[in-house]
Write a protein that binds this DNA or RNA. Sequence first.
DNA 1: GTGGTCTAGACCACA
DNA 2: GTGGTCTAGACCACA
Lengths: 120, 120, 120, 120
Amino acid sequence: MWFSIDFHSHTPVYKQIKNKIKEKILNNELKKEMFIPSIRVLAKELGVNLNTVARAYRELENENVIKSIRGSGYIVIGINEKDFINNKIEEFKKAVVSCKSANIKKEDLFEIIEDLFGGE
Amino acid sequence: MWFSIDFHSHTPVYKQIKNKIKEKILNNELKKEMFIPSIRVLAKELGVNLNTVARAYRELENENVIKSIRGSGYIVIGINEKDFINNKIEEFKKAVVSCKSANIKKEDLFEIIEDLFGGE
Amino acid sequence: MWFSIDFHSHTPVYKQIKNKIKEKILNNELKKEMFIPSIRVLAKELGVNLNTVARAYRELENENVIKSIRGSGYIVIGINEKDFINNKIEEFKKAVVSCKSANIKKEDLFEIIEDLFGGE
Amino acid sequence: MWFSIDFHSHTPVYKQIKNKIKEKILNNELKKEMFIPSIRVLAKELGVNLNTVARAYRELENENVIKSIRGSGYIVIGINEKDFINNKIEEFKKAVVSCKSANIKKEDLFEIIEDLFGGE
DNA sequence: GTGGTCTAGACCACA
DNA sequence: GTGGTCTAGACCACA
């Protein structure tokens, strides 16, 4: 399975799909010019409706991240790394602020990061 | 203003309300036995519907965080600090993992935390 | 304490009050011509608002169960035993039907009744 | 009609709905994995607002009795039979005590039960 | 004024 | 069509 959807998350499924694909591009799992899975294939794999994947792809196309090739599928164009990373950073900041207002100490957060980045 | 709602967030308004109140209890802004704003008052202050606040309060009551006093309002009971903090930690972990898969370096995350906890 | 109120019941408080008084009349705890507690006294005793007791008494007066004596209080007139008992029976039937649809056996119900009427 | 609501009861409609569904599960009218009527369908059938059914279903989900399947509906998980039956028994006891304090004889209660369980 | 429940109706995400 | 959330507004019981 390529990646999975958190159906209990408040983040809409189509946004989760967009996000995962952007991550894969950033990580070079998906390189420029590569084909991504067809709408039907991905929908089946994720257990999700066609329209949901279609919407994700449509928006990714509008953002110039992927491009549809008539009759063949979608290929990767590339992403605006800065924007994408800035979004992640913003989300991260929210999480930090939220922890701070719950009186969690920064040392604890440091430790968690070390753990998750572990072995590096 | 007691706190504010992010109407663009995917997190439902009633959940944001539940969260903010739990934070205030954790931070001792709201102490045991204290009255919290009435449903109507908070709804007006937040620019939110009465039912939305009512739902938040009802769920907080089911979780034994607050208690309704007939005809008077709601008073604070207390929160399960561990559960609440664990939830925050889980959210934080997700944000970290998400940053990691976007190739953000842990040093950058450390810096952000230092900034946000700044002056301490 | 004369009797008590179940504040978590869905039955309105004023109806609980009416009921309890009728029961006491039926059981001869309250006999004809006797004074019942004043509105203020009962309200205080039950931890309930004046208006609530007042409403109960007002309705009991309309049903000719009690009668207000100017400046003195309320005295018992009597109750229509049949109506009152029929109401109880109806409630009991509902409880039985409800148990039946939960697959509880009649023998269990018999046993519970024996227990509650115990020592007789 | 699947079941009906007593609009004159003091028991809130959403609680009546929760109860009826639990009963149906207990009686195997609703078996595990089966779909229950959609919120909209049940609301229409009962002549009740959508939100009322939604609340009942939401609470049943929190109690792990049913589970929502994205875009498809709700399926039955199961109920804690003991808790449910104990609740019924408690209600029954209240009804018995209430009859007792109205001087109704236990023999009368026995007869009523026999009648209602009749033909068995 | 305070909580509790309900309605009618709307809009979103998803199938 | 299905669930999820929210609004505006109403009425009840209670203080």
